[in-house]
């Protein structure tokens, strides 16, 4: 670990979260969810800290859990987390053109999850259970039903205008 990232994470905040869950190894997923809420992703140092601090865990084990579940991100997510449903129903009703439209509007390259300004992050998820509204996009928990490439552009334009 280099000197500069020594202070990147606030260990007292992590201690607080760990203690909130009784420091129990069986609560690791809940702890990681809380940490992700704070940092919008799981910083490497946070995983290492949790792995050394909590009994019965190690950094490698925590990393294993964090990479097993799709809900955890090792890269910082954007202020707006855009989730495009690509379950069967959404897929056949055209979720892929919506995804392409979002990538084009936000200027995201292949494999890039978060915009350079850190405002938006994009991911596909499997079924959200709202198949009747397909194709569905969820932005920070708000559901946008029956999206088209034109409709999603309007949604994004509105958010971008608010941020400008």
């Amino acid at each position: 670990m280099t000197a500069e990232n020594l202070h990147k994470i606030d260990t007292s905040k992590l201690d607080e979260i760990i203690n909130q869950y009784g420091g129990k190894k069986s609560n690791l997923i809940a702890i990681l969810q809380k940490v992700q809420e704070v940092y919008r992703y799981l910083p490497e140092d946070a995983m290492i800290y949790i792995g050394t601090k909590m009994e019965g865990l190690s950094p490698a084990t925590v990393f294993g859990v964090a990479t097993f579940y799709a809900q955890f991100s090792l890269e910082p997510k954007g202020k707006y987390e855009v989730k495009v449903c690509d379950g069967t129903a959404c897929h056949v009703r055209g979720s892929m053109p919506v995804l392409t439209a979002i990538k084009a509007r936000l200027d995201l390259k292949d494999g890039q999850m978060t915009t350079n300004d850190g405002l938006f992050s994009l991911e596909t998820v499997s079924c959200l259970g709202a198949c009747g509204l397909a194709p569905v996009v969820v932005i920070n928990g708000k559901v946008y039903p029956q999206m088209t490439s034109d409709a999603i552009k309007i949604v994004l334009d509105t958010l971008l205008k608010e941020e400008a």
Binding site: L57, S58, A60, T61, F63, G64, T67, F68
Partner: peptide, 10 residues
């Protein structure tokens, strides 16, 4: 008791 090695990904 050390788990330097672990599984990653899925």
């Amino acid at each position: 008791g050390h788990s330097v090695l672990g599984f990653a990904n899925r």
